[in-house]
């Protein structure tokens, strides 16, 4: 089915990807689809993504977001992707529930900053406007923008990502079942 669909006549699906407050592990997992990457390049082209180094997102079909929202810049990037993509996918644990970065959520963000910048080095908390300001808590992306699909996992396996992506690309209702559906 895949090969039949991947005819040259087919318009490539334009995909943007980003990692917000995450570890890029989900992006690494995307690379874990191994030789299927060759099939993928026949099917898709990339807009803004660590793969292309395009800085701002243009209109695209699918935006894939790894990581949660921990600062103001994350919000801006996420909104840019949402505004430009027809479909937005939350990829991995952090995008879905805040994940590891959200482990700071029981702490006061002010105390965190003071602890890091002042208490240990005697310095000051930087006030450079270039630096993204931290939110008081780390949030999953569906608390900031509308999200169409969720692919859980830390990271989701290459197989799960491949299954989900190809479902999407070929217009099937994307679905992850046991044992591909995993939260860890």
């Amino acid at each position: 089915m895949l090969h039949a669909a991947a005819t040259p006549a087919r318009k490539k699906v334009r995909i943007a990807t980003t990692s917000l407050s995450g570890c890029f592990g989900c992006h690494m997992s995307l690379l874990d689809i191994d030789e299927r990457l060759l099939e993928l390049v026949d099917l898709v082209e990339f807009d803004r993504s660590p793969i292309t180094d395009i800085k701002h997102c243009g209109p695209c079909d699918v935006a894939i977001v790894e990581g949660g929202v921990c600062n103001a810049e994350n919000v801006h990037v996420l909104r840019e992707l949402r505004a430009n993509a027809k479909v937005l996918v939350a990829l991995g644990a952090c995008a879905i529930n805040g994940g590891l970065p959200a482990q700071r959520n029981h702490l006061d963000v002010g105390d965190c900053l003071t602890r890091v910048y002042c208490d240990r080095t005697g310095g000051e908390v930087p006030d450079d406007p270039e630096l993204p300001l931290l939110l008081d808590k780390v949030h999953p992306i569906n608390e900031v923008v509308r999200v169409d699909y969720f692919v859980p996992g830390c990271p989701p396996s290459g197989d799960a990502i491949w299954k989900y992506l190809t479902d999407l690309i070929f217009g099937r209702m994307p679905r992850l079942e046991h044992p591909m559906l995993r939260f860890d």
Partner: peptide, 24 residues
């Protein structure tokens, strides 16, 4: 936060979420 939980893989809450296909 399942990735950091020792119970992951043996947790009934998580197993049920898989079974009922809770994605978020």
């Amino acid at each position: 936060f399942c990735p950091g939980c020792e119970k992951s893989g043996n947790c009934k809450l998580q197993a049920l979420a898989y079974d009922i296909e809770m994605l978020t």
